[in-house]
Design a binder for these strands. Structure first.
Lengths: 332, 332
DNA sequence: CCCAGTTATGGTACCGGTTCCACACTGAAT
DNA sequence: ATTCAGTGTGGAACCGGTACCATAACTGGG
């Protein structure tokens, strides 16, 4: 491997000049420039990112911290992050935390030793202490859905409350008359907002009851359990709005097993818009978050922060959209 | 940030001694050791991975090159890779190639400048030229499914041919009598092997015909198209074996739309064992690859190669298993 | 004619580690 | 007493860049 000194020697100039040429910082005569170009070509010289990292404190690497890459939502997100990052010349490291604060903290520890340029947090366990180490070294970070408690940071999320209201409204419009809700874990602000949206929308109805709400953990199995429980408690419900798609799919499964026709008899609506919603039978109505856009946006914000174009920290709320499909189509 | 020299000063020894202590290379008096420990604690010293990388040519980072992280199969795989890598102290960079050789080559170029310790290739486009650059710098790499053409390398794959035979056998045992096949793109050795397994198993039957095979591209939409075509051509087929789960799900969808009862009238079997197969209705019978194990194994092999415990390059073929489910259950 | 600003380039300390070599000391074998 | 292996430590070059500072030649304005 050729080094910058080899190039300098061959081009007959000093290393400083090469460095200036490479970084387009400072003056370089156009003739000299040609010589340097030739030398670089000849030696197939490629600057070492590591040496640059050591000298200049930039590694062009960002870390993506998420609960589980094999979760459909996050793999879609990761795709967007990597796409954007690579167009800006950054590479992406990913870390699975399983929503365990300990793992997350551990990753932060390991990665800050690596001079990572910035972090994207898509997990829900971030605390103030976690970010302290980042602040100390002024490593920029951005968050999905929610930032660390009591602290301002750039956050991208979607309109969860509004989306939940859209879901309920849609179900009502389709002629369903008693709507239950399976909500996610309440430490998640996302789940909270969606629950709030549901509650605000249905509180006024005569059939409203707190027992129409049942908790899940955002995974399919919990959706099944919750749906069973709800149907046992209220055999007359004719629609279920789930806090995310996976739980909605669980509900779908349960209804199917009970011989209940989804759509016609009981409507089901999810939230997230993961690709799998098109695979179910019937296809699942859902409130789609612009997952790809969210990932792309949060990455662009992070890179801006890294490169110093001052962006004020703020919360970006993206629009959600109703994907009306067969699982909420009630033939009359 | 404290540096190694700060620690040396505080502990009253030289940097060499600190380095020896940190790497457990060479002698360090046990008393000195205590002092060093204390100094490190006090200064909260953490060695810089970047400086280490520059000096010692090790970054503890591996790259995972795959077609698309948002593809269910690869996100499961990525999870396994990261799990194993992190227990060995490595971080994982991932890159989406969309099966385009150009993107792949580009990533190799970028990453080798970063002193990546090793590569895992899970894409199908790897050529001899691609790996040349890696050879030159003796950067180890391993492959999933297939290595670069005409070259030995460590490869982990599953028993595709055998699995295809299992699928056909299972369908026959369940009482299906005319089995079609949707195969993947033939540049993929995986798809080829599965097709071969199918053909070998059915060639002896009277109903066998080359027109019972139709091509797809491993994605759902192509499975739908292929299924339609097959049913048009042979309205009497009563089973479809697809070269992967996503195409099988496509077939499922088509059959459903045509009002054909999957399982009872027409059996469908996939291949891969992605989680989504449990979400479909009916649940999809599939030949499950041990995706997680494959990812874990390939990562362990790579790390062994990186750390120099000479492993001979070889091909590891893992067992597949039949997951018999409702999509191939024929009530009689 | 002098001084200041622009253009062009070189020298070198520095980033934070690793590693090789030199040196000193100990105790046992020759 | 001499040699030698094992133990323990320090000095300094080196990895491959960046960036600051110095130097110098060449403008043009006062």
């Amino acid at each position: 491997m050729a080094t910058i000194r080899d190039v300098a020697k061959l081009a007959g100039v000093s290393v400083s000049t090469i460095s200036r040429y490479l970084n387009k910082s400072g003056y370089v005569n156009s003739e000299t420039e040609q010589n340097i170009k030739a030398a670089i070509d000849k030696l197939k010289y490629e600057p070492s990112v590591v040496a640059r990292g050591l000298a200049g404190k930039q590694t062009n690497t960002i870390a993506l911290i998420l609960p589980d890459i094999s979760n459909l939502f996050f793999s879609d997100l990761a795709r967007a992050v990597e796409d954007v990052a690579s167009t800006y010349g950054y590479t992406v490291i990913f870390c699975n935390t399983d929503d365990q604060g300990g793992k997350e903290r551990n990753y932060i520890e390991v990665l800050k030793k690596k001079y990572i340029d910035g972090f994207i947090f898509a997990s829900n366990t971030l605390t103030h202490e976690d970010t302290e180490a980042l602040h100390k070294r002024s490593i920029p970070y951005v968050c999905l859905d929610r930032g660390p408690s009591d602290e301002l940071s750039s956050v991208v999320r979607s309109k969860n409350l509004e989306g939940a209201k859209m879901a309920v409204l849609h179900l009502l419009e389709m002629g369903y008359t008693k709507i239950a809700h399976i909500h996610g874990p309440q430490h998640s602000i996302t789940a909270k907002d969606r629950l709030a949206g549901y509650e605000e929308s249905v509180r006024g109805f005569a059939w409203y009851s707190p027992t129409l709400m049942e908790a899940g953990d955002f995974r399919m199995a919990s959706g099944m359990k919750a749906a069973e429980e709800l149907l046992r408690r209220h055999p007359d419900i004719d629609a279920i709005f789930a806090g995310n798609d996976l739980m909605a799919i669980g509900a779908l499964k349960v209804l199917h097993r009970m011989g209940i026709k989804v759509g016609e008899q009981v409507g089901v609506c999810g939230f997230d818009g993961i690709q799998t919603t098109e695979i179910t039978e019937p296809e699942l109505t859902t409130i789609a978050q612009p997952i790809y856009d969210m990932g792309a946006l949060i990455t662009r914000i992070l890179i801006k922060k890294i490169e110093g174009s001052l962006v004020e920290d703020q919360i970006y709320e993206l629009d959600v959209s109703l994907m009306a499909r067969a699982s909420t189509y009630r033939r009359r």
